[in-house]
Structure formats: C-alpha cells, structure tokens
Design a protein around this nucleic acid. Sequence first.
DNA 1: TTTGTTGCAAAACATTTGCACCCTG
DNA 2: CAGGGTGCAAATGTTTTGCAACAAA
Lengths: 175, 175
Amino acid sequence: MKAKDAPTLQTGRSNKSINSADIIADRQRLQDRADKESLKRILRDMNLKVTDQRLAILGALARGRIHATAQEIYDRVSRSHADIGFATVYRLLKLLAANGFVTEVRMGGLPAKYELTPRGHHDHLACTNCGRIIEFENRDIEELQSLVARNNGFLLTGHVLELYGLCPNCQKETS
Amino acid sequence: MKAKDAPTLQTGRSNKSINSADIIADRQRLQDRADKESLKRILRDMNLKVTDQRLAILGALARGRIHATAQEIYDRVSRSHADIGFATVYRLLKLLAANGFVTEVRMGGLPAKYELTPRGHHDHLACTNCGRIIEFENRDIEELQSLVARNNGFLLTGHVLELYGLCPNCQKETS
DNA sequence: TTTGTTGCAAAACATTTGCACCCTG
DNA sequence: CAGGGTGCAAATGTTTTGCAACAAA
C-alpha cells in the first residue's frame, strides 16, 4: 500500500569537489563516476548477484544527493525501472550497509538516510536560518572521537557530527 | 534478518558507591519531594496544564533509567495510572522535546529513547547492534567544535554528536 | 466556562518478511 | 539447474491523530 511516484524534491545543492585519494578503490570509483563496471565489481565483491535493479540502485546512490532516504532512492530508480519493488531497495541498502559501502544515518527525524561511506569523515556546519551547509573535516576531533570510543571498549564504525549556528550573513541580518 | 531482542543495557561506567539502604531511601524521599515541585515548574514553564499523568511521566523520566523508550516510560507509568494511554506519553514527550526539557535519541531502527536534558551537555556513544547507549562528555571536542564554527564565521548555537560502533559485548558476539 | 488534555482506536509511516516466480551464475 | 533475487502484499512496530469525553485554570 505504497508506491506512488511522489515527485521527489531533489535538492541538489552541494558542489563538493572531490580531491583525489586512492583509498578504497571500489568506493572511490563509485563516488567519482558511476560506470557500470565499477558498480558490478562492488556487487561481486560482496558476493552478490548482479542484477539490473541493483545496478540501478547503486547508480542512484552514486549520483544522487549526498544523503538520500530509501524513498528518494526508490523514486529515482523507479524512473528507469518502473516495476521495481520497495523491498528490493531496502534489501540492497541493508546489504550495502552491512558491507560498509553505505552508512545508515538517522538523525532527529524518522526516515533513515543513506550515504556512500565517506573516505574521510566529513561533518557539517549548518546555518539554522538560511540552511547553508559547510562541510568540514577536523582530524583532531576525529581522533578524540576514536579515543572516547576506545576508552569505552567500543569499536567505532561511524559518527554524526553536525554543528548548528548562524552563518555570517544571517548574523548581520538578525541584528 | 532481525536482530534478536536487544536487552538494552544500562549505561556502563557508573560506579556510584552508595552505602546503606537507609540513606538511599532517605535521599530518594527527599529527591521525590523536590522533584514534584520542579516537575510542576517544568510544566508551567511550558505553559502546560499540570495533570497527574504528566507528573507521572515526568517522574518516570526523572527517576527511571537514563535512557528510556516511550514504551518503557509507558509501562512504568501504567503501574500508577493503569488507564493511561500511550498517546499521552508520546504527546508529552514530544512537547518536552520541543521545549528542550527532554532529548530524543534515535539509533538505528530501534525505538527512540528519551532522557531529561542534562545540565552538563553530553554526547552519545551508541552500539549499532544492541542499542546500548553510553553518554560522554569531552571538553576538548567541544572546544574544537567552537573553533571550527568560529573559523567559518559561524555563531555556534548547538550541535549533535553521535558515535556509532560495537560495544564490547557485541564485538564478542560477532566473532 | 474556556481551553487544554486524555483514552481509545484507527491511521500513518518506515521497514521487514512470506511466498511464488524469475533470473544470474 | 540451483539458489539467490524480485515484486507484491501483508505483517510489524513505532509514532501520530481524530474525536468525544473530561478536567485544569
């Protein structure tokens, strides 16, 4: 009782330039250009069969917005695979998450968001007034986080760090 | 592929050494009395009417385990208010969260957990397998966050920091 | 009285699963 | 051909809501 092609809002705003790094080849390739071969390799690396649906889902993940909900991914994939099922999207997403290719993030609100597991953790600094988002990376913070996890016996697998505040422009406006 | 019943453990690391049961009882009594007044105050501060149900819910939050799910709070409150509905619990929880008296912590697909917003700010370290949550506070991280914001000209007003990983127990399980 | 609250049940949602059929390897 | 993969629908589990009865201010 679902499956409407509700138009997605599509807020592609981030113009992030990816600086080169040669960490994990598969992920890198997936993020840079989502050519079919790379996508297939990812599936094979996970011992999964290659199907059109999976390629489509991976493709959507690769070129979609940074954080997409399962619904958004489904909508996007529906355009090329009208008869794809919601379950298929969820199932693959789960598998990808289990294998570390995507990270499942649940912030505040409900629907889980998925993002390609970032090579280096990048976090967000967001303006609560205009919505502007700045990405940043701070190695010191990362290290402290690892330390906290380790001190508690945890094996750290991910994190969410979002800073909220007023950007320079909005600070002026507000005064 | 469901995770089994996650036995949501308590926060680790609490070694409050309390001596005799009498002292505990006394303190509890004092605390309860004090609580009732502050609980009412909390409601009034939010311009909400004071009802038995709300006091009970707040009380459960105040004395219950650090992180309680709505269901747990409901169960607890049910003991003194057999006919309370969980809609009431959810409604108050939502109001409290909106006003910052309570913080909603969501992890994985697990039900949201609530805690009275603590005086001293702290962040969360959560196990992605069993849902166990550990609170921590790290002044160095806080400072670095301020620094990042300042460097970008932002006026920092808040943040979310959640670390995800596997707790010691679940690490064993998984191997 | 005038609103704000409550319980109940139904509704909304997000996500998962059972099952028969289909396709990759 | 075997076993994984898929769509569909139904099932879950959590949180929200409509509504009439009710209670606090």
